[in-house]
Design a protein around this nucleic acid. Structure first.
Length: 175
DNA sequence: ACCCCGATCGTA
DNA sequence: ACGATCGGGGTT
């Protein structure tokens, strides 16, 4: 984390190549950049490997989940309930399927800032959809995560909207 | 080929 | 509490 640790710098791959819980926690307060949009991440969830029953990759690699088995720092965007998209960022070592779901952010490129509470609303507001799946977030300044001065205080809770894996406190919510 | 259900959201 | 809406994944 040498170059990437400067404020406003695009995070490099090594930020994402770590334990998913650490990445989910450390993404709080960071800036999600998509073209003209800048948003402070306020809520994340971790989905970790084939032993996590709520993880899409729990039953192995399929065409949809293949990106989760790939290199860290790539986007995993999928359609949910036929109407909404959810944005994840792939984590950990290549071959280990895990990702962080971006559930909430405060949109700065608007006045006053708009609270995007919910992964579907977030993708709709930013214009993220299927065509932005499987993109490397460590390359382009138009789709990346930027470092930020401070990590906010936060709480951990069970993940939202799942029927399995509710015992884990894998949701991170900035105060 | 078919069926079930989901990492959601807005409205009732 | 519920409906909208459709692709993925398991089953036949």
């Amino acid at each position: 984390m040498s170059r990437s640790s400067r404020c406003g710098e695009q995070l490099s791959r090594d930020f994402f190549q770590h334990d998913t819980l650490a990445v989910a926690e450390n993404l709080l307060g960071k800036i999600l950049v998509f073209h003209a949009h800048h948003a402070v991440i306020t809520e994340t969830e971790a989905y970790i490997g084939q032993n996590d029953p709520a993880c899409h990759a729990a039953r192995g690699k399929t065409p949809r989940t293949a990106v989760m088995f790939g290199e860290a720092g790539y986007s995993y965007i999928y359609l949910i309930y036929g109407m909404y998209f959810c944005l994840n960022i792939v984590t950990e070592a290549e071959g280990f399927p895990a990702a962080v779901l971006i559930r909430g952010a405060r949109l700065l490129s608007s006045s006053p800032p708009v609270l995007l509470n919910g992964p579907g609303k977030l993708c709709r507001a930013l214009g993220l959809s299927r065509e932005h799946n499987n993109q490397d977030l460590t390359i382009s300044p138009h789709f990346c995560i930027e470092n930020a001065p401070e990590k906010p205080s936060f709480q951990r809770t069970p993940r939202i909207g799942i029927s399995k894996g509710q015992d884990k406190l894998w949701r991170f919510l900035a105060n």
